[in-house]
Amino acid sequence: MLGGSIAVDSAEGMETVFTLTLPADLRHPEGSDAAPAVGEATGGQVLVIDDDPHMRDLLVRFLGRDGLGVATAANGQDGLALARGISPSAIILDVMMPRMDGWAVLSALKADPDLTEIPVIMVSMIRETGLAYSLGAADYLTKPVDWQRLKETVDRHRLPSAPPAGLALLVEGDAPAREELARLLEGEGWEMAQAEAAGPAHARMAERRPDLILVNLDLPQVGGFALLGELRRDPDLRRIPVIALTEGGLSPEDRARLRDQVRQVIQPGEESVEELLDELKRIAGEREKARVKGQG
Rank of each mutant, 00 (worst) to 15 (best):
A165F: 06
G294A: 15
P268Q: 06
A177I: 11
E270N: 06
L258E: 01
P88K: 07
P210R: 02
V48N: 02
L184D: 05
P53S: 12
V8N: 03
D236I: 01
D114K: 13
M96Y: 03
G4I: 13
N75T: 07
Q261T: 01
S32E: 15
H157R: 08
E230N: 01
R127S: 13
Q148W: 02
D50H: 06
A137W: 02
G31F: 06
R238P: 02
E288T: 08
A35D: 15
I91M: 13
M100P: 03
R257Y: 11
P98N: 06
A104S: 15
E230Q: 05
S107C: 04
M122W: 01
D112K: 11
G64Y: 04
D260Y: 04
T116Q: 10
V273N: 04
P241C: 02
L258N: 07
I6D: 04
R61M: 11
R287V: 00
L26H: 10
R238K: 14
A201R: 10
E288W: 08
D57H: 14
P163D: 07
D25E: 12
I121N: 00
E40G: 08
G44I: 13
I6M: 06
I86Q: 10
I243C: 07
D174P: 01
Y140N: 02
R178P: 04
G130V: 10
V222D: 04
L106Q: 01
I91N: 10
E207N: 01
I213P: 00
P88T: 05
E186T: 06
D114T: 14
R263T: 07
Q261N: 03
G294T: 10
I49M: 05
V17T: 15
H202R: 15
A290F: 04
G43C: 11
L227S: 05
L63C: 11
G285C: 02
H202T: 09
